[in-house]
Design a protein around this nucleic acid. Sequence first.
DNA 1: TAGTTGGCAGCAATGGGGTG
DNA 2: CACCCCATTGCTGCCAACTA
Length: 354
Amino acid sequence: MPDRSQRRITILDVAREAGVSKSTVSLVLRGSSLVNAETRDRVEAAAERIGYVYNRGAAALRSATSSFVALVIPDLVNPFFAQLAVAVEEALSARGFVPLLANTNDSPNRQRDLMRSMREHGAAGVMISPAQGTPPEDLAGLGLPIVTMMRRPASAPDPALPYVGPDNADGARRIAAHLHGLGHRRLAFLGGTTGMSTQHERLSGLRAGLAAAGLDPDRAVTVHDALPSRSGGHAAALEVLAAAREGDRPTAFVGYNDIVAFGAGGALRAQGLRIGRDIALTGFDNVAETAHHAPPLTTVDVRIDDLGRAAAAALLARIGGEAVPPETILPTRLVVRESCGAPGAGATEPVRPS
DNA sequence: TAGTTGGCAGCAATGGGGTG
DNA sequence: CACCCCATTGCTGCCAACTA
């Protein structure tokens, strides 16, 4: 037996309260110009008085549309994706859409379950940064408008699978040029070769930048596997330090992203190295935390807000049936802070033994 | 003719009644 | 008893028709 006291207040209640038909209430709620101003005021006052809340579920049922957009993120603990989610949410809400946020923990299986759940909830479209190892058919066969962000789907550019991301290669080239300009000739790239497009593009850009500076990339940069996390960066940096021969240690550590650099920074400090003096450290993304790192981190600004806005705009265009370019690549810029000095800048001062 | 209204459609779950 | 079919429920949006 349903509890009548808990019954939802509907437009029929508003209509009764205002002394009009439910059709008129519906017109008022949707901002129709057909309604007399005095009637509109009466309906709005009645709705306010009895505590009416618009039922989007019923509206979606009637109109066969949805205002929910699935926002599927691989790692919400990474502040980059948290900032991206905020930017996307702002862009969506400005157009009357609400994100349904899902975290995949970088698992394609979990991602598959979440995508099914999003469809069950009637999402109008999907914005996704795919989990590592996502089979292309998981995205292509979804049957919903979709936009990929940051990580390319593992296929050639496809108008049905638009991609929005930063110019990773160009950003990494800027890092290479900056470090080379400071005198660094031995770099360690902490980001490995997991097959993620972002890592591949950033490493390629780094190598291209070193080559453009006249160095042999195969000698100037070593590549080390690192999970895209603080602990991944920490472990990778420790391994590099442990494996380096006397006098052979890289003078600059290049994090695949900012949180890898944060993790590496912790490892370097624990070994008694002074970041910015004994050793250089860079990140990528320019999350808010980089400015407050000790010392503040040199990184590449990927314009997270612009990425979120561009991705949201692309998806809403797709939902509206408009064509969008298969790729939207946003420019990056280098942000120089205190985490990089010339190699050996602090050599005259003793290094605390580890 | 501007403003308002009643009837019905839309989807999926649920429950009741009929059949083998 | 299992199964199937159909009516009902929930709430809003659309549209033709009505009224002043």
